[in-house]
Structures are given as C-alpha cells and as structure tokens.
Design a protein around this nucleic acid. Sequence first.
DNA 1: GTCTATAAACAGATAGAC
DNA 2: GTCTATCTGTTTATAGAC
Lengths: 220, 220
Amino acid sequence: MARGRPSPAKPTETSRQRLIVAAIDLFGRRGLEATSTREIARAARVNIAGIAYHFGGKNQLYLACAEHIATTLKAGFATQMKSPAPGLTAQEQLRLTIAGVAKLMLVTPSIAPFARFVLREHMEPGPALDTLYTGVMEPMHTRLCDLWAEATGRAADSERTKLQIFGLLSQVLVFRMARAGALRRMGWDELGPREFAMILENVNESLDALIAQVGRERLT
Amino acid sequence: MARGRPSPAKPTETSRQRLIVAAIDLFGRRGLEATSTREIARAARVNIAGIAYHFGGKNQLYLACAEHIATTLKAGFATQMKSPAPGLTAQEQLRLTIAGVAKLMLVTPSIAPFARFVLREHMEPGPALDTLYTGVMEPMHTRLCDLWAEATGRAADSERTKLQIFGLLSQVLVFRMARAGALRRMGWDELGPREFAMILENVNESLDALIAQVGRERLT
DNA sequence: GTCTATAAACAGATAGAC
DNA sequence: GTCTATCTGTTTATAGAC
C-alpha cells in the first residue's frame, strides 16, 4: 500500500458491494430502522458519506439489498433447478431440493444472511417485500409445489398442495426464525452438522409420511 | 385494595396497563430499537413522561412487556391444560391443544400481539428472551411433547419427539412470522375463519400422517 | 470516489409545576 | 400521577474540500 490509510480507495464496485453485504447482514439481524448508517459504514469499512453517494440514502440502500438478494437467489435457483438429475424419482428430487434449501437457509455462510433479511422483511412488510417475494419466496415455493405434484399426482397449484409445501418449508424456517429458543429447547449448543442432519431427517420423515398418506388415500 | 382515600378509579393502573398493551403491539411489530417512546405514549394516550414514571425507561418497559406476556400466557396454559377433557384419546387432545395454540397465535385479537412479540424477541435475542422462553415457549412445547408421547408411546423428551413437535408448531408459526408472503402465495386476501380452518386441517393431516407412520414402524 | 464538517430532525431521559 | 419544557446525545442527509 502506498499510503498509511486503513484501507481506502480501491475500485468503486468493491466499496458498493461491501456496503451491500454489510447492510444485508445488519438489516437482517436488527431491521431497517434499528440499524444506523454508521454501523453499516463501519462494518463495511466505508465512509458514511459513501452510502449517500452510492445509493442516495438509507432507504435506497435497503431496497438495493433486496434487489441484490433477489437477483442472486433467482440465478441460484435457476441453475440448481435446471439439472433434473436424471434417474431420480420426483420424491427423491423433492428431498434433494428441500435439503438444498435448508442448507442455504440454515448453514451456508454467504446465503444465510439473505434468508434472515427476507424473513425479517416478511415479518414487517415494507416496499421491499414485493421484490423479495417475487424473487425468492415465490420461485422456491412454486418449484417445490411442482415436484410435489409430480411425486403425488396432485395439482401443483391447489391450496392443499401449497399448504403442505408450506408445512414442510416451515419446519426448516423455524430454525432460522426462532433459532435461539429452538436450540435451547432441543438442548443444542449450536446448529452444527449433526444438528442439521437431524433437522433434515425429521423433515424427510414428515415428507415420507405425507406421501404415504396420499398413497393410501388413492387406494380408497 | 380499596383504601379510604376517595381517589379517582385507579388512574394509575389504567395508564400503566395501556402503556404495556400499546408497547407489546408496537415492539412486536417493529422491534425494540425501532420503536420510539413517543409512538408508544401516543398509542397508549399517555404522556411521554409516564414511561419513565411507571417503568423507569424504555428498556424496563420492554422487560415489563415480556413479564406481562409470560405471566398472562402461563396462567392461560395452566387453566387450558388443567382440563384433560375426559374420554378423549391423547391424539384427540393433541389436536385440540394444537388448535388452541393456533387460535391464540393467529386469530385471538388480544393474544396475537403476544405471539408477535415473543417471536420477534426470539429472532433477535435480548435479555427478555429468557423470560419469554421459560414462560411461553417451553411450557407450550413441553405440553405438546407430553401429549405426543402419550399418543405414540415415544419418549417425551427425546430429540426426535421435540423435533416432530417443532415440525407441527412451525406449520402454524409460519403464518404468524411470514404472514404477508404466505397469504400472497396462497392467494388469500386475509386470514379469516375459512383460511384458519384450512391451515388447521393441514396441520391435522400432518399429525395424522406422522402418527400413522409411527404406528407402522411399531409393527416392524 | 472518498473524505470532513455540519445542518436539521429526532431520540430517551429528567426537572419541576400542578 | 400527570403534565410541560428542556437537556443531551444521536440520527440521516448534505455541502464542499481534495
């Protein structure tokens, strides 16, 4: 480094992206209004005025975070769900997809803050909800409903199918939204690989039980 | 209680309680830091200085809200779960208890804000979490685990039982925490009686499927 | 693009009259 | 117990130097 400054002047895009990454994390943890631009700037190692320069203000930064999450995850879903993994049954694909979603939601370090942000926005809906719903929640849920329809022969867009997919998804989400209490009740100190495997196994059992139920209903 | 002093009919208690009710609602919607004492005072129709007078400050008001929720719900659970409704099987009791919890969480106008407060505190844990966990989450979850054990013969405190109860509870919770997105995906404009009945029916199906699964496993 | 300095609004807390 | 008025610190946003 030529200068003795902390870590100044690199490409613009870096500073912009650092702001978005830091903001998603802080907004997701504390919410829009409870997070100050100073905290974000400090966490991103960017001067406070940079927020106004790059985004225009706190609210626009928040919206930019939502856009970033939506485009990132939309692309991720598109690639992940392009590969039908030939030879697998729909039920196996359903398991794999749920496992992938759970990993992103609960474990993956770079994506887990996205889930926190999305769920917080859902809890106190604002202007960014539409972006997040359309870009994240809707495609994920729809994809699962399609697989469910393929596995069971039920309609993918029926209320019942949607509810059942929400039922499966929520069993993962609860460990994102109420992690502290859930871990305490489980007697777990952390959500490590062992705990994650148990959560997933439980969801899979629930899935198998539901599909078995559907199978029995078809016989009648 | 009633002293000889001819004071106006308990203006203190009224103002104190109005503050708590308003604060639970606002804190639950926006969070501790994002809610200003001025908003709370205005919503409660109490002067701003009343918060300092009655509670000492914003943080203590927040803790008082948690205490109020914990004692209120603890009492509610105690009475509700005292009546075993003789003649019902454990599975039927389980259904009834889940239905009762769901009604409190999603519908009951005076209790639904409590659920919002509890879940928000779980999402960003602070000093009040312990009170809420011990007073609300723990007894509710434990009660359901006990009924589950009675219905299936499984151990009430096994990790698997706890996970399965979380799985059932979360199917209700998701309509509290992600209501906006969930309703939109369902194509619902509101969460009225018809929608509530469908949610409950779905949880019950999930419960039945799980219990049926357990029954089949016992045969092997 | 990045920075310092500052303006204007708003926060929580408190003193003291009634 | 309730109220007005005010103190003190922090917030977002912005102006302008480099």
